[in-house]
Simulated assay, not measured.
Amino acid sequence: MPATAFAPAKINLFLHVGAPQADGYHPLRSLMAFADIGDRLSADPSAAMEVRVRGPSAHALAHEADNLVARAARALAAHVRTPLAPFRLTLEKLLPVAAGLGGGSSDAGAALRLLREVWGLTLSDAELEAVAASLGADGAACLFGRPVLAEGRGERLTPLAALPAIDAVLVNAGPGVSTAKVYGRFDALGVFDPMDIHPELPTFEDVIEAASWLATQRNDLEAAARLVEPSVGDVLDTLASEPEALLARMSGSGGTCFALCASDIEAEALAERMESLAPDWWVRRCRLGGPWPDDT
């Protein structure tokens, strides 16, 4: 049996974005939770290191000769600087691509965890996190899939003391949304978070309390994403109008949106209605929290 790792979908429960700095990067603040659905990665001994992609979203990565899983393997090998046995990494790509779900970063995190295991490396979690952070803004946060408050460029992580398990529905209308285009439109709009107000994260007793507090927050990229890809607005407006949705919001830079629900019964009803209303949309019921075991 090959060794396996789970790469959960990342959800930005809120996302505050400041003005671009001199180097072009935007400071951000985001509460991230992780879903019990995502991609899967397996490792088999092989004659040479290679990465294979399969699954319903594999076609979206066909043009990428160097995806984040391959980059993660190279970065880890470079970090340890010792000869390592070759493995074939097989990515089962189940999440939509360019969807605001941190799929590539989560896949990279799964690759780092998996390779540390199969290579028998003694790297600490902190060392592995440093390698993950070098792969992108969401890299460190997505390594272990724990609920965190991410700040700076995403590298300053504060674990959340307690987050109740939240039943949710994820919906994506289909078109990939370019992060670069969304940030370009965001900059053109010129409305930036001052980033000098730090919201205190309360301890949530239940999902009702969590949704109520999250409603006082926002995703600063939503207006720009609606302009770049109008289907994002279609999904958000549809979710927000449904009785089961305690809160409807976009994740990341789009185009996946989510609705928080009071229980799995409400989430199931909402997911079934979304599938009936828009059969072409990607709709998944899930639970948010994390971390989730690799056998999820």
Score class of each variant (00 low, 15 high):
272 E>Q: 14
263 S>Y: 02
235 V>S: 02
1 M>F: 10
103 G>M: 03
274 M>R: 07
33 A>E: 02
64 E>A: 13
212 S>Y: 13
294 D>C: 01
128 L>P: 05
5 A>R: 03
33 A>D: 00
130 A>S: 13
292 W>V: 00
284 R>S: 12
39 D>T: 09
8 P>E: 01
4 T>F: 13
83 P>T: 03
195 M>S: 08
292 W>K: 02
121 L>S: 08
172 N>S: 14
283 V>D: 10
293 P>S: 12
44 D>Y: 11
51 V>K: 09
185 R>I: 01
161 A>C: 10
165 A>Q: 14
148 V>N: 01
119 W>E: 09
146 R>E: 12
81 R>D: 15
61 L>D: 01
217 Q>Y: 08
28 L>H: 00
279 P>V: 14
206 D>F: 06
92 E>L: 14
296 T>I: 14
56 P>E: 15
175 P>V: 02
169 V>S: 03
95 L>R: 00
126 A>L: 09
154 G>K: 09
269 A>L: 14
121 L>W: 11
73 A>M: 07
179 T>F: 15
284 R>M: 08
235 V>F: 03
36 D>E: 10
57 S>Y: 12
14 F>H: 13
228 V>M: 11
291 P>S: 01
226 R>Y: 09
141 A>Y: 05
226 R>W: 06
51 V>N: 06
69 V>H: 06
